[in-house]
Simulated scan of single mutants.
Amino acid sequence: MATGDRVRLFHLPFSFMLPQRVAHERGYFEEAGLAVELIERDRESVDVKYIPSESSLTEDHGIDLYPICKWESIKRTWEMGDGRIVAKGTFADLPYTVFVRPDSDVTGPKDLAGVPVAVNRRTGQEYTAMRALEEHMAPEDVILKGFGMPTERLRALRDGEVEAAILLDPQSTLAEHMGFREVLSFDNHMGIVGGEGIDSEVLDAFMAAYDRAAMEINANPEVFREDYLDMLEKDSRVAPGLFEDIDMGAVRADLSVPRYEVPEPADRAELDEHLEWMKERELVEESADIDRIVAN
């Protein structure tokens, strides 16, 4: 747990979390008064997802702060007591995109009713996708199928194991170069969860350093281009078969570093509305209490 101003920060190596790594590597956390240890799992050791469903990050792994999907943050903090939500946001101009094969009969979002869509279960995609798809169909017509990491979703779509798949950039751009067709996009909503050792001063220092990194990336995006492309490079080593017939030079040329945003303090009323939506769909217990989910 956090000791004084020492913070164990879990890092998701996705494109929308780049400012967190930049703040750590460039010493912005340290200059804000925090001794941050960045905890990150190696891509080659991850088959399904980075955040384990079966264990608590704050209690079992000693993590003080961790980013996670906004809806999963509600479920995780309530069911596992894995900290409390301290912040939220979209973090970057990087929407989720639903892709289908070029010969698919799906031409628009409404055609996805009753069609299995590949997602990564218990991550940002599952609940975010449910809410987005419900804008175009009845809740009972939303069908999601777990396929793990982006490389696995792309493989399943390519091999015809699923009709549609949800991706984020840079994998969305890779999907376009594989010939897949976009039929829907929607925002990626995130949260940040803190353990017992995180107080308002530590959180303010974290936000200040994060803000500094985000503003620097926004001002000089090309300087951070290689950092942004890092996950795609790791994917190419983990799943080389996906990249055999792809002109990676063309993929890289099509990719642009997005504009980043700074997380905002958790909004209790907004999260309570999301909690009620989850209760209606039996995604979380009816007894779930927002006061045990959101930090004071």
Rank of each mutant, 00 (worst) to 15 (best):
Q171F: 00
E222W: 04
E152N: 13
A164R: 08
N218P: 12
R225P: 13
R158Y: 00
H189L: 15
V202W: 09
H189A: 07
M190Q: 15
P221K: 02
P221C: 12
I166K: 03
D199T: 06
E222L: 03
D169F: 05
M207H: 11
L184V: 04
E163H: 11
M207R: 10
E216K: 14
F224Y: 14
L168D: 08
G195L: 09
F180M: 08
G148Y: 15
T151C: 01
A219Y: 08
E216Q: 15
R155F: 02
E222I: 05
R158C: 00
Q171P: 02
S200M: 12
I166H: 01
M178D: 00
R153G: 08
A165C: 03
I198P: 11
L184N: 04
S185P: 05
R155E: 15
A209F: 12
R153F: 09
A214Y: 00
N220C: 04
A175C: 01
D204H: 13
A165I: 03
Q171L: 07
Y210R: 10
L157V: 07
E152D: 13
I192Y: 14
G191W: 12
S200K: 14
V193Q: 00
A214P: 03
M190L: 13
G197D: 15
F206T: 01
D187V: 07
L203C: 11
F180T: 00
E176I: 00
G197Y: 14
I217H: 00
A165N: 06
I192V: 14
G195R: 10
G195F: 14
A209T: 09
I166P: 01
M178C: 01
A219P: 12
L157Y: 09
M207I: 15
D204W: 15
M178F: 02
A209K: 04
A208K: 15
A205K: 12
F180K: 02
N220F: 09
D159F: 06
R158P: 01
R181V: 11
E222V: 01
A214D: 01
E222K: 06
E216L: 13
I198F: 08
A208Y: 12
D159I: 02
D187I: 03
L157N: 02
L157W: 06
A213M: 04
A156W: 01
G194D: 09
D227F: 15
P150Y: 02
T173S: 06
E182P: 09
E196L: 13
S200A: 14
L184G: 03
A205S: 13
